[in-house]
Nucleic acid binder design. Structure first.
Lengths: 145, 145
DNA sequence: ACAATATAGTTCGACGACGAACAAATGCAA
DNA sequence: TTGCATTTGTTCGTCGTCGAACTATATTGT
């Protein structure tokens, strides 16, 4: 009656994701959602000037969700849009200075939010686990239609 | 400019959760949501005759979400409700035979859905990873207000 | 016993994400 | 070139989850 190991793993993953997301959501400044933070983070780390679809694919949301997120970020002045000079359909997303500042602040908040658990999971633990998770992620990504 | 290891871990977790959830959602029979499946699964594994709040806490959703989920399950005849004889406010949730059958079918579907990734992640991999994740989950759970 | 507080379940309004469908622009094929 | 399929970003309708607020019942403190 016990679960296959992969189920147990996905179950843990699901609960961790939920707890971490809720925790971060509450810690972030009023109105800045986790989805916004993820996009800001992505743009800082991978470079801005990317199209909506490209960002959407990278952070695993559908295009309408990204339209919504980017509109919120633009309304907050954290992001600026320009038409793609090479593709009349596309828009390119650029970070504003305010966007970079907000991201930096959010990272600090996020670090503080997860700090309490750092004592229970060591760096070595994490690094032993990461390769497997990356492989799992890659496999799931590949298996996606 | 690189992430703290714990961030990288949570990032992988978040993506894996998203991919796995989407994949399962599409594989499940029409109208049976992942949230429904999670509840059925919980009742089979941990025993039925539990209250809504208790189930809600176990599967990490808020009470209104559980009210909604249980109402859907009841409408489908997968679950039956009885007043708690020891607490006039409470309702106890019981699985119906149809509910157990639906769960069994859903488990088979879920197993088939994740089968393609089994080749990339061995049982040994999973078991090496599980203890760390459980510790992380417990830490996050404890740190929750 | 009785008032104050907490808890179970629900309803409500807001919000984010999804799939479907659309217009505009691009790419490909004959 | 012209016609068809693809892609980009958007809008729309639906749905699930959340927090706040409410009723009814329990529990606690005095």
């Amino acid at each position: 009656m016990s679960d296959p190991p992969l189920f147990a793993l996905l179950n843990e993953v699901s609960i961790i994701e939920h707890l971490a997301r809720n925790r971060l959501e509450r810690a972030l400044p009023e109105g800045l959602r986790v989805s916004h933070f993820v996009v800001l983070n992505h743009l800082v780390r991978m470079g801005d000037g990317r199209s909506l679809v490209r960002i959407a694919r990278a952070v695993q949301v559908e295009r309408p969700a990204m339209t919504n997120t980017i509109q919120k970020l633009e309304a907050r002045g954290l992001v600026r849009l320009e038409p793609d000079p090479r593709d009349g359909r596309g828009k390119l997303v650029f970070l504003t200075p305010a966007g970079r500042a907000a991201r930096q602040e959010a990272v600090a908040i996020a670090e503080a939010a997860v700090a309490p658990v750092a004592g229970d999971v060591s760096i070595a633990d994490i690094e032993s686990v990461l390769p497997v998770l990356r492989r799992l992620r890659a496999a799931l990504d590949r298996a996606r239609d």
